[in-house]
Design a protein around this nucleic acid. Structure first.
Lengths: 164, 164
DNA sequence: AATAGATAGTACATTTATGTAATACTTGCC
DNA sequence: GGCAAGTATTACATAAATGTACTATCTATT
């Protein structure tokens, strides 16, 4: 029995009481919340032995996915979906752990470059196998076609959210 | 241009550098994160004038979706996907606002019933039209068939996450 | 009835996260 | 030179989440 059943049951009752309530959008939004929570918790559990948490992992991976392993705080904020004030705090932590480096740009001295250190790169390489396993395992119930379909639908959903 | 493009671009680079990295699971997980954040922020913005936030809204709606508008803290935790320690904190706030009531059960005096007050019910009825609009609007880009398909795939995804 | 063990809920301490506003510099344009 | 706009950090205030331990109550067993 899925943990989602009680939630869905209550949404059904809500619809009976308030017929204008749009069941499917509400169900989808709740599912997203449940899934997000689960994925977040799983990732945190896996990453804890490596001394980092999920938000920090996201930042490291955004740097890893960039030529030269380097981004400005504002680019990093956009890529990771964090507010810039958060980026400062999170990158402070990563600097303190020696995983990234802050350097000021020569061309434009307002800018700061956040760059993976060798230690940061080594850490990423050490946890990536586990992350790959986790991701594969988490989506194991979905056939490749279903996964592709899900990606398409989620993108369409996100587009709708963003265009206001 | 979607805000997701920079993220996706960096996942593509990651795949080139580390071919074992499972692109689609990672993309789907990131999409869930982005969507969740957006939905959460939208809801908070809508609810702010009503003096509550998204987690509090979730609790109120789970009570509203129950016969008698009443649940135990543990049932509420399950339905809302929160830890029980969080429920105490959140329901403290709702009690302080006079939206719900705490009463101890007569049959089992370990148990506590959390029940919507008239004020809570009135508040729900006042924000529900806006919530319905928001939900409909957020999913407006999806055709009914696509929404149904998305629901199905998300459920399958969640099942996979839960069965370990 | 006595007691061990399970269950429900809360309290407290701690950590983590977030939001907002103010500040410090830099750049580029006029 | 002076001023508007851009970039990042800081500081502060809150909010939120988590973990652990604690109290009270109930159940089952003897």
């Amino acid at each position: 029995m899925s943990s989602f059943a009680p939630t869905e049951q209550r949404l059904a009752v809500t619809c009976r009481q308030y017929p204008a309530f749009p069941r499917e959008p509400a169900v989808v939004v709740r599912l997203v919340k449940h899934i997000h929570k689960r994925v977040h918790d799983d990732a945190n559990a896996l990453l804890k032995p490596f001394g980092i948490n999920h938000p920090e992992y996201n930042l490291l991976m955004m740097l890893y996915g960039t030529e030269g392993y380097s981004l400005n705080p504002s680019q990093l904020a956009e890529a990771a979906g964090e507010k810039s004030a958060n980026i400062t705090r999170l990158t402070d932590g990563l600097c303190a752990k020696g995983l990234i480096e802050r350097t000021t740009s020569d061309e434009d001295r307002r800018k700061v470059a956040l760059t993976l250190t060798d230690a940061g790169l080594a850490l990423i390489r050490s946890f990536l196998p586990g992350i790959c396993d986790l991701l594969a395992h988490q989506t194991a119930t979905l056939q490749p076609r279903e996964l592709a379909q899900l990606e398409k639908l989620l993108k369409k959903f996100l587009d709708g959210l963003e265009q206001g």
